[in-house]
Amino acid sequence: MSLFLQIKPFAFQLLMPLRTSQGILRDKKGFLIHLQNEDKESGWGEVAPMKNAELNLCAAILKSLGSTPSREKLERNLATWPGSLSFGIGAALAELDSLVGHKSSQDWLKTSQSALLLPTDKSPVLFLESILKDSQIKNENLTIKWKVGNSPMEVEKKLLGEILRRLPQNAHLRLDANGGWDRKQAMDWANHLSTEPKLEWIEQPLPANDISGLEELSTKIPVALDESLLLNPVLKETWQSWQIRKPLLEGDPRVLLKELTNNVGYRVISTSFETGIGRRWIHHLAALQQKGPTPTAPGLAPGWCPDSAMFSANPESVWDAA
Rank of each mutant, 00 (worst) to 15 (best):
Met50Ser: 09
Met50Leu: 13
Met50Asp: 04
Lys51Asn: 15
Lys51His: 15
Glu54Ile: 12
Leu57Trp: 03
Leu57Asn: 09
Leu57Ser: 06
Cys58Asn: 01
Leu62Ala: 03
Lys63Met: 06
Leu65Gln: 07
Gly66Lys: 05
Ser67Glu: 09
Pro69Thr: 03
Glu72Ser: 00
Lys73Tyr: 04
Lys73Ser: 08
Lys73Gln: 08
Lys73Leu: 14
Leu74Gly: 01
Leu74Met: 08
Glu75Cys: 06
Ala79Trp: 10
Ala79Ser: 09
Thr80Pro: 00
Thr80Asn: 14
Pro82Thr: 04
Pro82Leu: 02
Pro82Ile: 12
Gly83Val: 02
Gly83Phe: 09
Ser84Glu: 07
Phe87Thr: 08
Phe87Tyr: 15
Gly88Leu: 00
Ile89Asn: 06
Ala91Arg: 12
Ala92Lys: 00
Asp97Val: 09
Ser104Gln: 04
Asp107His: 15
Asp107Tyr: 12
Asp107Gly: 10
Trp108Cys: 10
Trp108Asn: 08
Trp108Ser: 04
Leu109Ala: 13
Lys110His: 14
Gln113Phe: 15
Ser114His: 10
Ser114Ala: 10
Ala115Asn: 12
Ala115Thr: 15
Ala115Pro: 05
Ala115Tyr: 06
Leu116Gln: 13
Leu116Tyr: 12
Leu116Phe: 15
Leu118His: 13
Pro119Cys: 08
Pro124Gln: 03
Pro124Leu: 07
Phe127Ala: 13
Glu129Cys: 08
Ser130Gln: 08
Lys133Gln: 15
Lys133Pro: 11
Lys133Gly: 05
Ser135Val: 15
Ser135Asp: 13
Gln136Asn: 02
Gln136Asp: 09
Ile137Leu: 14
Asn139Gln: 06
